[in-house]
Computed example of a mutant assay.
Amino acid sequence: MIGALLPPGVAWAERFADDVPEALFPQEQQAIAQAVPKRRREFATGRWCARRALHRLGLPSVPILPGERGAPGWPPGVVGSITHCPGYRGAVVARAGAFLTVGVDAEVDEPLPDGVLEAVSLPAERSQLDRPGPPSWDRLLFSAKESIYKAWFPVARRWLDFTEAQVTLHDDGTFTADVLVDGPLRAVGGRWLSSGGLLLTAVAIPAPAYFPPASRPAPPRRGRPAQ
């Protein structure tokens, strides 16, 4: 599914169940040793997906350890993102020379719990959600913001609040966002997909050298885990 949202040059892998061997490196096993079994399974499947995606770039298997705010520690010269939700695990990677950053998110296609939408959105964003579904537009908005955050954090190295990016969802399977604080990204675009009871969103931003000059992008708080 996730491959339909990604441009050439971004490699990916996905699974719909934790049905792969828990082939973790010793360092990864140590990092997850205190986690509950469910978290261990999704962690192992996510790393399996990440290594499969790295192989598609012609790169070897390496440990991918949780770093700052839980963001995966990719090998030098690689950018990437991992996501998981009930019924889905996926990872995307790209060479840093071609892409500045990538971010992906998966969610179950169902409405957000009561009270969550108001906490993660701006009034202008909520005004666009009154349209027939599927998808669950509020959950899709949440997912788009998660993808943006996962793309933002590795280059900004700082938290981006849900209310610091204003997202517009488009019916054609795309979304756009204005980042409302200073940082390395100002305008962000991405793609979304609703299929099989799942929502997927993806952001893939080419490296600055790959932007035409006219479209070149402008160059500790509480936090949620990045992946």
Rank of each mutant, 00 (worst) to 15 (best):
I2F: 12
L5W: 10
A11C: 12
W12Y: 14
E14S: 12
F16W: 13
D18C: 15
L24P: 03
F25A: 13
F25M: 02
E28C: 10
Q29W: 09
Q30N: 07
A31N: 02
A33P: 06
Q34T: 13
A35S: 15
A35G: 01
V36Y: 05
P37V: 06
F43G: 00
T45G: 08
G46K: 10
C49D: 06
L54W: 11
P60A: 15
S61C: 12
V62R: 13
P66H: 11
G70L: 01
G70E: 11
P72T: 11
P72A: 12
P76M: 09
P76I: 02
G80I: 02
I82M: 15
C85M: 05
C85A: 15
P86Q: 13
P86V: 09
Y88Q: 00
Y88L: 14
R89L: 15
A91I: 01
V92W: 03
A96L: 10
A96V: 01
G97L: 13
G97V: 06
L100Y: 06
T101S: 15
V102S: 06
V102T: 12
V102Q: 00
V104M: 10
A106H: 04
V108S: 10
D109W: 13
E110G: 13
G115L: 02
V116M: 12
E118M: 04
A119Y: 07
V120N: 04
R126E: 10
Q128V: 10
D130C: 12
R131T: 00
G133Y: 05
P134V: 01
P135E: 08
W137C: 07
F142I: 07
S143N: 06
K145G: 05
A151R: 04
W152D: 04
P154Q: 02
V155I: 15
V155Q: 14
A156S: 14
R157G: 05
R158W: 09
L160I: 08
D161G: 15
D161L: 12
F162T: 04
F162A: 03
F162N: 11
A165L: 04
T168P: 06
L169V: 02
L169F: 06
D171T: 12
D171R: 13
D172Q: 07
G173L: 04
F175E: 00
D178S: 13
V181P: 08
P184N: 03
R186P: 08
V188I: 14
G190L: 03
G190S: 11
L193K: 02
S195Y: 01
G197S: 07
G197C: 08
V203K: 02
V203G: 08
P208F: 01
P212V: 07
P213H: 03
A214N: 06
S215G: 09
S215V: 11
A218E: 14
A218Y: 01
P219F: 07
P220R: 05
R221K: 12
R222L: 14
G223K: 08
R224A: 13
R224T: 05
R224P: 06
P225M: 09
A226K: 03
